[in-house]
Amino acid sequence: MVPARLSLSARRALWAWAFLAVPIVFYVTIRLYPAVDAFVMSFTNWNIVGTRAFNGLDNYLRLFGDPRFWTVLRNTFVYLGAGLVVSMGLAFAVAYHLDKVRFGHGFLRALYFVPHITTAVAMAWVWRWFYQPVPVGLFNDLLVAVGLPQQPFLRSTGQALFAILAPAVWAGIGFQIVIFLAGLKAIPAHYYEAAALDGAGPWRVLFEITLPLLRPTVVFLTVTSSIAYLRIFDYVYAMTLGTGGPLDSTKPIVLMIFETAFKNFEMGYAAAQTVVLFLILLAISLLQLRLMDRRP
């Protein structure tokens, strides 16, 4: 029993720490310890077996001096920028309208969610066929049918990244739609009723009620989607057969980490790449939280 003489806020703080006790043990041992381990490893030349010899900042200097790293970093940010804008925009548009539809609502939502439950290996195979040249490929057939020239898609250094991003957005958008829908449903109806009494039009309702009240959902999706696109891997790996090609034009940083760690067994170097990715993710997330998560 919590002593009654404690102030209300002290009592609540005690409760808070009691709720957090087990999770903190979990996060420290299962999540933080391995992360710290990777951080320490990034200053060593460890390659799977043997001792870890410290080599100072060598891994980081090597990374920053590697032109491939900058290509990979640029790719990663293109995935982030394009992926975030396109997926959030589409997901909101779908969810916003779907929320108002009652006829076949559940069925429609299931249609949009189906891609999210598929596996990347299987779906990447289908998408690779879609990108084939005429007469096999669906997309090129469509382009030619409407009188446009064929596109090389996966065989072009300029288009391949976007050709891979498309299935990634396709697979991820069901998640965003469901979260947006949950957020829209959490908006108390009396706000809308009040707006209706005021005679507000749909656009005013959207910008003055829906979007502001949806802020926690938007913040959540922006942060988690950013993290997801910065950590993109599955579709790149499956669509390019593990290469990140052609000519590294689609390789994201996680694929580079994967290659360094498991193809070259250079764990120390891979850890340094992980630390850099982590710092980027942390900076972006904190920035987004700071900019967006202010209470109204």
């Binding site: 195979w125 690779r128 066929w129 084939q132 040249p133 096999v136 996966l154 065989r155 057969l241």
Partner: peptide, 8 residues
């Protein structure tokens, strides 16, 4: 021939 023809 073409690279990527019929995927591989």
């Amino acid at each position: 021939g073409e690279a990527g023809f019929m995927t591989d």
